[in-house]
Every structure is written in structure tokens, then in C-alpha cells.
Amino acid sequence: MIPLINTVALSRFFGTGEAMVKALDEVSLSIEPGEFTAIVGPSGSGKSTLLHLIGGLDKPDSGTVALNGTNIADMSGNKLSDFRRDNIGFVFQAYNLIPVLSAAENIEYIMLLQGITAVKRRIRVKEMLDIVGLAGMENRRPAQLSGGQQQRVAVARAMASNPSIILADEPTANLDSKTGISLLNVMKDLNQNRNMTFVFSTHDQKIIERARRLVYLRDGKIEKEETQ
């Protein structure tokens, strides 16, 4: 069976000469569909870099990264944009909703890029908002939502394109403990009930406790892996 994500000897360096930093050093990792995996490590260990490479936001200096068997390290331009749009959902630390669009419009945006018809978009937006527990808040702008609610909209946006995987970069870092747990429960439900694959980069204990698989990174290398 082809793994959902497969990285082989993935390396990413920043800077040159003596100032060169090996953010990732020949990391090989496979993630199967339906996993709820956390990439864990201290700051500077390469968590976000690995997540960005898996998500096609950055290009490796060497190695390959394949999603559903497609090597995205070689993609560029519109092909890469379309691949990200259709296959990968992102949740960022700072929510990063478009402030001038309502919750519903933020979710709708990605479907608009996919060319989905307005009627289908509206149905799916409603469904997404129901899933993340924000029914009735579709017309609120991000500024009218709490941090937790904004991050739920971000999760709904990430799911809207029906991606193969959702990559979440420190999704609870800006949330209080209670809100963070509530959000994680939503994600856990999606993972368990809809078989949605989640990969987190985090050092948040709440995520670490809920993840079924932990990948520990240190100095750009996989230090160890645990399955819970």
C-alpha cells in the first residue's frame, strides 16, 4: 500500500558556508491515511520546515516528498498551487482568516478556487460550519469571533476542499487551554469519524497526549518515534 505521505532523505538547509543551518537533515518519514500524528520537538528542531515541505510550501535541497505517490518536490507554479488546493489543508498558528470575509466566505474561498458552483459551495460551507460547531455564525467576520472560533473556521476552511491531509502548524499555540482542548476534540472527531489525516507540528502537551503517533525531531533529524 502506498503511504499517504512519504519523505525520503529530505534535507533543507538555510544560509551558506559556515553560517549554514541544517534545518532538516535526511529525514525519511511515512504517514498512512487516517493518522493523527504530531511532529514534536523544541524550537528550531525543524518541525515547521518539515510541515512546509510536506505541504509543498517550500522546496527541499535534496530528497523527495510524495503525497499519494506524487512527488511534489518537483512541482512548481500553477501545478503546485492546484495540488495544494485539492490535496492539502492548512491550519496556521495565528488562524489567518481573511479579515474582510465572513466565516462562511473564508470557507467558501478555497472552493471558489476549485471552481465549485455557488449552490454546492453554500451547502458545503453549512456542513463544514456544523462540523466545527459554528452553525449560525456564518456571517460573522473574524474580528467578531473568539480565537477558538476563528481557529475552528480555519479547520473548516482546511477541510472545505476535501483534502487528503490537514497540516496544522502549532494550531493551539494562541489558544487558552480550554479552547485548545475543545478545538483538538473537533479535530480528533474528524479523524475518528471521517478518517481525516492530521499532521501537527507542536510542542503543546495537549496535542502530544492526543496524538496516536509522535515523531520527535531534534536538530533536523528524527530522534525517535512513538505510537500511543
Partner: peptide, 14 residues
């Protein structure tokens, strides 16, 4: 940052 986000979610340069 917002442009970074909308590019991340698959918005084409055009």
C-alpha cells in the same frame, strides 16, 4: 502574511 496564507491554500499567482 495573508498573501502567504492564500497562496498556501492553493491560490494561483494569476
Amino acid at each position: 502574511y495573508e498573501f502567504g496564507v492564500i497562496k498556501s491554500v492553493g491560490t494561483r499567482p494569476a
